[in-house]
Design a protein around this nucleic acid. Structure first.
Lengths: 234, 234
DNA sequence: GTATGTGAAACCGTTCACAGCA
DNA sequence: TGCTGTGAACGGTTTCACATAC
């Protein structure tokens, strides 16, 4: 069966909201209620889940704990993934330090940088190694995913080294499109792109306003029927 | 005319690649060449541009400098947007410090935090103010976009304060869906979501491999005809 | 009665294919 | 001739609507 790529991102969102519901003590939830929480259509949730199995009870809904677990299994959130980061500048260090306080699905096991004065430093409990060590360290420590947090100019080189060392996935924070063999999966996190989308929206909204003034006697419509904002899916 | 939302993100990508071409001294580019650089279909570029006007010359292509300028104008990259950040922990400070080295379309004019010991510190040249100051400072300094870099628990509160203070756009790094009035535009940067998509892909790829072994006498296909990876479009 | 699971329909975005123009 | 601009065809995703099951 063909699974729309965006459905995977939605599963992550469902998982998050299910955890929140569980924390609140909610035991059963319908696709309608979960859809409200996630900002999507109820049928979409049922379709997305249907790609992977049947998790609900007709006439009842979904058991929160159970569904949460199922989705976590689908997304492999039930293991601890081993990551390394290349580049411990502002962003790289922030990621390392952030991870140390998160009890999550991943852990950093190595960090690399090119600048000699950064080598040997400990950031977020991880010692920084020279980039030449990538090949050995990645292999020896079983790193599965490499995080690229270097400047755009060095990003492709970092990717090449990570691929050579055997990582199977790359999370790329540099604003360039990496070239990698198809067997290596790449996800990009690009806040510059998001910012530029914001610029456009702000500009478009103020240059062509479509909110009309009310005329006397005009009735206030109870629900403006705003379509849900789905920008979180990127 | 209805413009597909992702088209805006692609325009950003086109702009980046046009700048690279310009730096290389390329003066004219066809949709085909630009498409190769951007990893999209040539017709897509022409369609995306057609939403905003006619920028090319038939039989020739697009003048790099000119098109670059046009797109920058469409995205309002030709002004300096005024940003503030709420939360100067690992991520918030990294953003402030990063911005100070970028000669770009934005500048941070204020930073806020709740923790008393962070107040008054200077990060990336910006002094940190208490969150209670948001209302005044945002109004007085003309902040247009607020960046949320606080913990998920405080993110909605930060958003409320920013909205009250009059920002028109929010760049949200917290992994929750913010509730805001429709007039305020929100873009989310959520590396956790990206990471979880990677988990899924890595798991799916190894649990059901589709690369078959070659049989004797089998012909090597010259181009495997891989569809372009569009994950950069968030 | 109520909510899931799922074909069918509607919708939206992408790509094709070619007319139009330098 | 070569490449843009664009209607039409295509393919994928979302939503509807209802049969199904508790």
């Amino acid at each position: 069966m063909k699974i729309p790529p965006i459905a995977i991102t939605r599963l992550s969102v469902y998982a998050r909201n299910l955890e929140l519901l569980d924390q609140k003590g909610v035991e059963v939830v319908s696709s309608g209620r979960l859809a409200d929480a996630c900002g999507v259509n109820p049928a979409q949730i049922r379709k997305d889940l249907a790609y992977f199995g049947q998790f609900g009870v007709r006439g009842v809904g979904y058991y929160v704990k159970e569904l949460s677990l199922e989705i976590r299994r689908i997304l492999s959130l039930d293991k601890t993934w081993r990551l390394c980061v290349v580049g411990v500048g502002n962003l790289g260090s922030a990621l390392l330090r952030h991870a140390q306080f998160i009890d999550g699905s991943y852990t950093f096991v190595a960090a690399f940088d090119r600048k000699p004065k950064r080598i040997g430093a400990r950031i977020g409990g991880i010692e920084v190694s020279p980039i030449e060590a990538i090949l050995d360290v990645v292999k020896n420590t079983g790193v599965e995913i490499g995080v690229i947090a270097v400047k755009p100019k060095s990003a492709q080189e970092a990717a090449d080294m990570l691929v050579k060392a055997g990582v199977r996935g790359i999370l790329n924070f540099a604003p360039i499109q990496l070239q990698c063999p198809a067997k290596v999966f790449i996800e990009n996190v690009d806040f510059g792109l998001k910012l530029e989308v914001l610029y456009y929206k702000l500009t478009a909204a103020s240059s062509r306003p479509h909110r009309r003034h009310m005329k006397a006697g005009q009735v206030i419509v109870p629900k403006p029927k705003e379509p849900p904002n789905k920008s979180f899916l990127v």
